[in-house]
Design a protein around this nucleic acid. Structure first.
Length: 272
DNA sequence: GTCCAGGCATGCA
DNA sequence: TGCATGCATGGA
């Protein structure tokens, strides 16, 4: 990967296996919006970004070198060799089929807090509606970064709200989960940084002890917010996919189950 | 009107 | 330990 500074941002050359629409709009992050010119705008780690692919280069509009190194390099998982991983995953026939069709899905490294709250909201819900709820949550309670764009609200802000406040923006029965989660993070009862430093087993146990977090939400948070790329979340779509694997997951997934899962998830939503 | 969505807590056996 | 049930909401 070559990084070039320009007058209005950064240009990345030689990035392999990155599809912006597939990665930013495949149900792992909920805040990216496609613009009329085909670029994508969003906010992560309190920073706004507009990114566009042009002639297989990636233009990070308005980003400076520090933001790139501090945030975006890791956010897009740019130091991981996805091309090599995909070759390995293709030893499985079903994944081979899906990767050829959906090449370029990456696992984003999102903030633990945002990922955890987002996937608590995601339960028994559809992606379109999840996006709407999270947009209202951010627009109403997140700090404004630039006109029309807000950071994900902090635990401090969310803990100051009532269950009714969450219900008013559409969280439904999940309102009480997010309220308690915000309270416990704010009081220090839940320490997300400490959880991120744990090994997978302990981190998962810690997440499963949270009110409103079960096996599926824990796995999504671990995969998308805590950088545990071995996690394999199973939702209603993946349950359908698992019928194709009666003997369990194939050996070639080992170590990269989360990446295989995203390809299969995307395939299931389009084919099953 | 019914069914479903990136499920979970609860009660009961 | 495993299984049935209720849960908020909006789109199909």
């Amino acid at each position: 990967m070559i990084i070039e500074d320009t007058d209005n941002g950064i240009v990345l050359k030689g990035v392999k296996c990155l599809s912006l629409p597939l990665t930013l709009d495949c149900g792992e992050a909920f805040r990216w919006e496609e613009q009329e010119d085909g670029s994508w705008s969003g906010v992560a780690y309190g920073k706004f970004l507009n990114i566009k692919e042009e002639n297989s280069n990636f233009i990070l509009n308005g980003a400076n070198r520090k933001d790139f190194e501090d945030v975006w390099r890791n956010y897009f998982d740019l130091d991981r060799d996805y091309a090599a991983i995909c070759e390995k995953l293709k030893e499985d026939p079903l994944v081979r089929e899906t990767i050829d069709e959906y090449y370029g899905i990456r696992i984003l490294n999102q903030e633990p807090w945002e990922a955890l709250v987002s996937f608590v909201i995601s339960q028994q819900n559809n992606i379109k509606r999840i996006k709407g709820i999270i947009k209202r949550l951010c627009d109403t309670y997140g700090a404004q970064i630039r006109p029309g764009w807000h950071a994900f609200p902090s635990s401090k802000v969310l803990s100051s709200l009532t269950i009714s406040d969450f219900e008013a923006i559409g969280l439904g029965y999940r309102a009480k989960y997010v309220k308690k989660l915000a309270d416990d993070v704010e009081s220090g009862k839940i320490d997300l940084a400490a959880i991120k430093a744990m090994d997978l087993d302990d981190a998962k146990k810690a997440l499963l002890s949270i009110y409103g977090v079960g096996e599926k939400v824990a796995n999504c948070a671990l995969l998308f917010g805590f950088q545990f790329i071995r996690c394999f979340p199973v939702d209603v779509w993946m349950k359908r996919v698992l019928q194709y694997y009666p003997n369990g997951l194939p050996e070639c997934f080992k170590g990269y189950e989360g990446i295989a899962q995203q390809y299969l998830f995307h395939w299931a939503r389009n084919n099953l």
